[in-house]
């Protein structure tokens, strides 16, 4: 499954664990939060990396311990107009102090990438085709921003 990281399309080895799937214990898996909460014992012998998939109706601060243990957190954009994941990301980064990979999955528009990055996301798993040239151009147009944010690469007024 290809994803976008640092402006490039890369192959990705994470596997989404659905309810009953049998995955090797060495695989890198993405586990939905509810599965994690109900079936954590299944993972006691898991040797691969574990990522947490959190849907956008969840108060992330209620699961600070699970976030802290995760190797990656994945948040969802079920529609590109649904902005909840932006706030969840800021809470995860700025309040829970999570510093590993934070991924957004779903209906991501090229034109939103800069906003998402400023909220703390660093990889994108999005529906639709990836056009590297458009991505590059559109993510480089704005070099300035008024807000100071997580790992900000934009010029702000100092």
């Amino acid at each position: 499954m290809p994803i976008i990281k640092d402006g490039a399309l890369i192959e990705d080895n994470w596997t989404l664990l659905d309810e009953e799937a049998d995955v090797p214990s060495s695989a890198d898996i993405i586990i939905p939060l509810n599965v994690m909460l109900e079936k954590a014992e299944r993972l006691s012998n898991h040797s691969g990396r574990i990522a947490l998939l959190i849907s956008n109706d969840i108060a992330v601060e209620d699961h600070a311990d699970l976030v802290a243990k995760a190797d990656m957190v994945v948040l969802e954009l079920p529609a590109f107009t649904d902005g909840r994941a932006y706030s969840q990301a800021r809470v995860i980064r700025e309040e829970l102090g999570f510093d590993k990979e934070l991924r957004v999955k779903g209906d991501v528009l090229v034109d939103q990438a800069a906003y998402l990055q400023r909220c703390g996301f660093d990889s994108f798993d999005f529906d639709g085709e990836f056009d590297a040239e458009t991505w590059k151009k559109s993510s480089e147009i704005m070099t300035t921003g008024y807000q100071r944010t997580y790992k900000d690469e934009l010029e702000t007024r100092s």
Binding site: F80, G83, Y115
Partner: peptide
Amino acid sequence: RQWSSLHPEFSYLP
């Protein structure tokens, strides 16, 4: 005005 312009977190509100 400045703070709200292209606010990264609050551009896709309900």
